[in-house]
Design a binder for these strands. Sequence first.
DNA 1: GTGGTCTAACTTGTATGGTAGTATAGCAAT
DNA 2: ATTGCTATACTACCATACAAGTTAGACCAC
Lengths: 223, 223
Amino acid sequence: MGSIETGKSIGVQLHNLLREAIVRGELRPGEALSETDIAARYSVSRQPVREAFIRLAQERLVAVLPQRGTFVVKISIRDVQDVRFVREAIEIAVVREAAEQRDPALVKSLRSILAQQRKVKGGDNAAFLALDEQFHQTIALATGREHAWRVIDQIKAQMDRVRYLSYDAATPLSRLVEQHTAIVDAIEAGDPIAAEKAMHHHQQEILQSLSALAQRFPDAFEL
Amino acid sequence: MGSIETGKSIGVQLHNLLREAIVRGELRPGEALSETDIAARYSVSRQPVREAFIRLAQERLVAVLPQRGTFVVKISIRDVQDVRFVREAIEIAVVREAAEQRDPALVKSLRSILAQQRKVKGGDNAAFLALDEQFHQTIALATGREHAWRVIDQIKAQMDRVRYLSYDAATPLSRLVEQHTAIVDAIEAGDPIAAEKAMHHHQQEILQSLSALAQRFPDAFEL
DNA sequence: GTGGTCTAACTTGTATGGTAGTATAGCAAT
DNA sequence: ATTGCTATACTACCATACAAGTTAGACCAC
């Protein structure tokens, strides 16, 4: 599961490590996480592990049941839909601002990311997802909405868990690139309405694959 | 500052206690919070205090600087504006859904809250704020967007800190009631566009008082 | 076989001791 | 008077020990 890199406190490092492991599905939904186990595995005491669990619990990635155990929470379809709703609301507002500002430097950065995305080899889902994240983050930061991105970053973990379920991307990557292109075009044209629509269309994408994935991986979902 | 009520774990109780104290301004921005001090004050060990700090830090209410101390973060005008932006984006999307659903039960609940708000005595800011929160929460939960409300609840702490600064409400409460009424009317009429506009107008309110408060309480703000 | 009870092996929660790092106050040298 | 060093009193961080609660299974009574 990787080892501990130096730098920040052990608790923070463990938090990042476990968070990524959960999002990538290496720690499976429903799996029990024991403070003692994790502590032994990384040769640290229980305390930092405990603190990492607290942070994960606040992100709804694990559930701590007193005197019973700590478990990776299963993916809830309802929650994913709800998170998607919130994310869309925020990103639509952000992209509208971006279209109003019409910053040439932003457009250039985005086009560069698009070029990289087109080069991604067939099934390298993880690489594409990283670029996808960078795309959305770039827009948010360019409009000065750092806090907006912080919120998105926190809640999107729930959505990323779903996306990591499908190695063979449910949606052809080329279609996602098309949608990204439409967004950039609208920003460049300075057309807030078109930008909103393009982002709305893009955000709908995950809904397509959701129910299919829930059937294919029943154990990963609750109920 | 209040004492510890029974029920959940000490760490969680402390978290709630301190969070409220910070939002209400009883713990002042910039003030240093020592693990040892808090622990002694409530006659508990340092560990639960530490865990409460971690939760507060994730909500950006305190900043823990390793080996230096833990401090109540000052209010950042930039952050408040940014949080407001996110909240507006979410609430606009929520209220649009509410208007589309046109649930009579929801309208009835909201009218009831409005009636209570009108009865609030002159300067009882805290009582009014509680009803205001209930108003917005009711809309979100009625549309089934629990997660949306969770997000709002987390980030709005930053805004509430500003609102608690002004005992003599910066905005006449009657004006806020008018804005609420306009929102309910739009929901009842089933007019999503009007609902959006009413909510947008309402969310702008805090911006009016922000700079004035920053001048009146310079110590509470950063920079 | 079935049901109840008790024990033992877990779990998280809390308390406490010790470590390493930081800032500050006081003293010395210039 | 000003600068530089040193001792000291903080801080958050980590490890360990103990307490309290839950669960699962062995065991016994019927």
